[in-house]
Design a protein around this nucleic acid. Sequence first.
DNA 1: ACCTGAACACCGTTCAAGT
DNA 2: ACCTGAACACCGTTCAAGT
Lengths: 207, 207
Amino acid sequence: MPESSEKTYHHGDLRGELLKAAARLLREKGVGGLSLREVARVTGVSHAAPYRHFKDKAALLAAVAEAGFAELTAGCRRAEAANSDAPARQLVDAGVGYVLLAVRNPERTQLMFGGALAPADWTPELHRAATDAFAALEHIIENGQRAGAYRGGETRELALAAWSAVHGLAMLVTAGQLGDLAGDEEQVRGLARMVTKVAVEGIGTRD
Amino acid sequence: MPESSEKTYHHGDLRGELLKAAARLLREKGVGGLSLREVARVTGVSHAAPYRHFKDKAALLAAVAEAGFAELTAGCRRAEAANSDAPARQLVDAGVGYVLLAVRNPERTQLMFGGALAPADWTPELHRAATDAFAALEHIIENGQRAGAYRGGETRELALAAWSAVHGLAMLVTAGQLGDLAGDEEQVRGLARMVTKVAVEGIGTRD
DNA sequence: ACCTGAACACCGTTCAAGT
DNA sequence: ACCTGAACACCGTTCAAGT
């Protein structure tokens, strides 16, 4: 509640406020329970106002998902930078980070990967963000191949195998398929490390 | 359109018809586009009638998801039976079957794992069906351990690693994250085989 | 026992109109 | 330029009433 402008039609950044409110409501009520009207209500604006800033509800959700992919990419790059010359550790760190990020934002993860956003609702920006995240992972695999830690050949395939393993665990945990692990971050970390290590073994040299 | 009963308040099996209609609409319009009112409309019954057979919309969806888990379990058992004394082949077959089943029913897979069903909406029957599917996979891993193909120790952990890999690929494909592979079943089969083999290597003996 | 029809409180989206 | 308020066509769910 800024004292300066009192009520100058929401001091400029309605778009940003809607985004923040949407992220919060998503976390609280889940993707099914989030309504555009409530986002507007909570932001203190009429239910038609969001349409000045987003084409429709899906566009708002796409923007939230985009931020999620950006965090995934950043985590991957951090893991790479923190373990130069240790490709296997790069991959394990990135994998653990991926799963932890998912478990800390289960509803957003469902939004990103669960099909709440129909293919037609994927904005070009969202596509870019998702592609970037995969590229960051692929880069880590490439490092490992160059160092002779992983077998040669199709980098894309090895990256897909590693991604699948980590992504699968993340989805199983966020869906609650493995029991209620949401609180027990240490256990999640352990499972993520185990699964990622199996992937490292699986794509490793020697055969 | 049976000629016998003409219109005797829908010849007995409204529950079954609703289930069938729901499965069809789910496939056609996705989990977000499916409404209980349309299920009723398509079945030729008033929009309040389904409530005689299902507590609410979530209960109907849960029943559809349940059937999906049952198919998963059946596929696993088929893969096991078809490859007795070849544990690695059991796992690869089961994995490929898992991914193919998902890609053939993308919307149902999103329903089963995508979080459209809130935790509170998981019926006991649905929980049972999901647990059974994991148990069927675990059994295949156990075979491999007994045969000395996989390393000893926690069967649950090895099974989780394998499940994560296969599940991750299935979710990435059905979410369209890997491009539009829905049509190209041969390519999906190839990717599934590759990912499952990496998992077999990863949990294999020798280190 | 099983289904209907009206009713209620919500949605997403559009559009004229206000400042 | 940016927002409002009424309107429209939908929802899920409930409940008295019909057969």
